[in-house]
């Protein structure tokens, strides 16, 4: 979709919502080298949403949307949870279908789009919480990697079920006391990044969203590699300040506290040899992104 397609018929201009008008005038579809630096000076592809004040997940959402290399031809797949409260306000086509089947939906979607548009780049990006990715949807997360489906999976890891009120999840730390783990969680935080590596992902990254530069680079690489090579996975710590008892202005500090050396979210990145070779070929052409997607 080019920006042309969303232009408003002049006759209808005044009845369109102001947010839509802004999107047409100041949205960043098709902008070269888009990234988090565009925020504040352009219309973001995410609108006012109903997440809690101060929610780090909201920050992550803003970065992801700002950093998609090809938003005019990107389709996102979400799942049930806090993220599903945001997707209705996201200005790229996005699908909510059920809880846990996001990687299955993305598999079918990516294949259908590749079949329908063989000469076009259509990026598919899954964005779901840790419950959807690791617990109820683990089967489909892994199988999409085994099958080498060409899309990016982003997990917003808040280490619990936030939308249902703070129940323990597979990515919760061992010993953490939460609903449904009243005596403390009995087993270790599932190490999905490691599992992703051996399951066929060509790019795996784990980090918090405290450093937008790093998030931008990861999102960009993950999507480019998924487009050409195979599945990629990014796990972002987006703490649920509400459920871990933090004040609404403490989310950033919580992330910074969790990413130090040997901490749960110490930055880790894995790039397969094949993907490394591919990244070398695209690096010099970075500014000519249009040609790659043309």
């Amino acid at each position: 979709m080019s920006k042309e397609k969303i232009k408003i018929n002049t006759e209808f201009y005044d009845i369109m919502p102001v947010e839509y008008q802004e999107l047409v005038e100041e949205g960043t579809y098709g902008k070269e080298g888009r990234g988090w630096k565009d925020v504040g000076e352009s219309k973001e592809l995410i609108e006012e949403h109903s997440l809690c004040a101060g929610c780090p997940e909201s920050i992550a959402f803003r970065y992801v949307l700002a950093c998609l290399p090809n938003p005019e031809d990107t389709i996102m797949v979400g799942s049930t949870g806090c993220t599903s409260l945001v997707f209705p306000h996201v200005a790229v086509h996005n699908i909510h279908s059920l809880f846990g089947n996001q990687n299955a939906v993305a598999s079918g979607l990516k294949r259908a789009l590749s079949y329908r548009f063989p000469d076009k780049v259509k990026d598919v990006v899954v964005l779901a919480g840790d419950g959807a990715t690791v617990d109820i949807g683990l089967d489909m997360t892994l199988q999409s990697w085994f099958r080498q489906e060409k899309f990016t999976t982003i997990c917003f890891d808040n280490e619990l079920y936030a939308n249902t009120g703070g129940q323990s999840s597979g990515l919760m730390q061992k010993g953490f006391v939460a609903k449904m783990a009243p005596a403390g969680k009995k087993f270790e935080k599932v190490n999905l990044p490691e599992i992703a590596k051996v399951s066929g992902c060509h790019y795996v990254a784990k980090m918090t969203v405290s450093k937008p530069n790093r998030v931008e680079k990861a999102i960009r690489q993950a999507i480019l590699i998924a487009r050409e090579i195979g599945p990629t996975y990014i796990q972002l710590y987006t703490p649920c300040i509400l459920e871990i008892g933090k004040q609404m202005m403490e989310g950033l500090q919580e992330m910074r506290d969790s990413e130090g050396p040997n901490k749960r979210f110490e930055f880790e990145e894995y790039i397969s040899e094949e993907a490394k070779a591919y990244l070398k070929t695209v690096a010099p052409k970075k500014k000519k992104r249009k040609e790659i997607s043309a």
């Binding site: 389709i75 797949v77 699908i95 279908s97 059920l98 089947n101 299955a104 939906v105 993305a106 598999s107 079918g108 979607l109 990516k110 294949r111 259908a112 789009l113 079949y115 329908r116 089967d139 489909m140 199988q143």
Partner: peptide
Amino acid sequence: FAVMGECAGASFGGARV
């Protein structure tokens, strides 16, 4: 469960499934 999700994805993407 996954197959029907995959069918949904393909159909959302405009395919006859």
